[in-house]
Design a protein around this nucleic acid. Sequence first.
RNA 1: GCCGGCGUAGCUCAAUCGGCAGAGCAACCGCCUUGUAAGCGGUAGGUUGCGGGUUCAAAUCCCGCCGCUGGCUCCA
Length: 633
Amino acid sequence: MNMSMVKVMLPGEQVQVPQDSTLAQVAEQLAPGAVAARLNGELVDLTHPLDQDAKVEFITVASPEGLEILRHSTAHVMAQAVRRLFPGARLAIGPAIENGFYYDFDVPEPFSPDDLTRIEEEMEGIIKADLPFKRQELDKGKALGLFAGEEYKEELIEELPDESVTIYSQGEFVDLCRGPHLPGTGHIKAFKLVNVAGAYWRGDSSRPMLQRIYGVAFPTQEELAEHLYMLEEAAKRDHRRLGRELDLFSIHEEGPGFPFFHPKGMVLRNLLEDFWREEHAKRGYKEIQTPIILSEQLWRQSGHWDHYQENMYFTKIDDAAYAIKPMNCPGAMLVYKERLHSYREFPLRLAEMGLVHRHELSGVLHGLMRVRCFTQDDAHIFMLPSQIKDEIMGIIDLVDYIYRQVFGFEYRVELSTRPENSMGSDEVWERATTALQEALKSRQMEFTVNEGDGAFYGPKIDFHLRDCLGRTWQCGTIQLDFLMPERFDLVYVGEDGERHRPVMIHRVVLGSIERFIGILIEHYAGAFPLWLAPVQVRLLAVGERHSEYVLGLEKKLSGCGIRVESDVRSEKVGYKIRDAQMQQVPYMIVVGDKEVESGMLSVRHRRQGDLGVMSVDEFVQRVEKESRSKQGD
RNA sequence: GCCGGCGUAGCUCAAUCGGCAGAGCAACCGCCUUGUAAGCGGUAGGUUGCGGGUUCAAAUCCCGCCGCUGGCUCCA
């Protein structure tokens, strides 16, 4: 018998196999750890047959794609377990996510933590049975029949563009799925269900709330354990915890979402603001300040009344209606309108550290990261249409300078386009969005597009930073606005002597001072670089007889502009060092008989330990140099 | 706002089945006079988030509210 062969091109080698062999058969010989494959560029299951010559790359769970498959398959196993334990549960969607997966279920009763344990046990059984994942293609009509009564699956099937859909099954469990999947459930080695949460179907709060179970999954138990350990470590960096331990800020039941800054938090905050002012002055910004409470009429004119009312607080003064500002722009408009402007003044950059109040839903408040009042490092820039691109590029440079060069943050950029409830014509939106896009492209920034997430008055570029758990928070934003100038009838006198309409940019760099401080706390795990450290030096008296000398030294150092405090408590030196270490004080100076006699300083660094002896001048210079560098440990 | 979990001393956490609210750290007082990550002893600290209910008896069980928290939605 003449068996026909096909050529399989693998990275670095080429083999011939009988036609209609499966990829699994090839993998058995050549890639024992494979769980899936890339066949002519497309991800497929190992059960896929080879009917013609093909380029093949095998995938293991060590690769990002393999890991995603592992997690996705684990989600299916979880759904199977849930179905066994809760036969009435209807399935929604169950994708792989960072570190794991989730699956949404419609169940009459929410899952309890005990249920999670039972589900985990059921999953173990399914894994032990090593059920193969089977793929099947069928037309939509048949699929709808198969999933009859599964309203979420029906909705998904109806929306799929192709006439045929694929389903996967393992054992008795069948699910609509594009795949690919692991060869069998036995390939799952390490997973854990971590929590349950309510989640609206398709993220729409007007639709039913489903129960979402989150899990994590890794190729090995070791990696899973490592991940769980990392989470524990991350919790130690949580700004809410460090804010209390380092006495930076507090939030009270009497003011949910309204943070209180303590003396040390204020030092940090003021230093950050000083830095901000310096950098903005260098770049031609003028600073203004506008009131927190302004007439409701103004907010009607700006469009906030129609588009932002739900987030605003209102009040009355002498029976007249006022609103507490949720944004700074209308105030800046009034400043602009104070007098007539010439094109020669442009771009006119009016900055404002503006305290805004917004009614955020109670369920979203989170330490300093999401609050109900915060200070925006705002600026409104008025300019000619021809200046848009340069101006936006200048702001991108400033953001990059502060985020990356000064603080060493990794950040993500998003372009947000027109939302549903917005003002203005399509044409204006189109123009503004294109301008932002072009600025990003000429700066060669990588960015993702966030459809429908713009402000109600214009599209925006957002800069996102990560917290200790990898959650991202929007910080900087650049918003282009053709509408507000229209609404407030802003004009400038052009070269031609005629009046024209200026273009405006709203922008923040840090975003919210509060949120940015939250990010800083987590980024440095409380060990702020010297220039930001609320206390830079702590003097530790060895015995009580050294107190007086220590206090004199404190005066001397603080006279040199160093933030210093003294510990003259009746405690051992080891105790004082431990205390200063835990407070993340960068420098400790031990003062005993030797130092009093010699006039030298015994310096300890919070990371490098004992630095030995140096003179006061030497130490002051060291501190000044390190502060100027803005470098961390 | 919605779904789940949680709320005990300033902080971290105990308190068996519903049976006298407890420990460590911090604070305060005293002893020690201290040399590079926690010296010793003592004192004080609580309407168990708030309000109802069940019970002979509630931190514990039930209901409502407040707050925190993980998500969803929303957003700097």
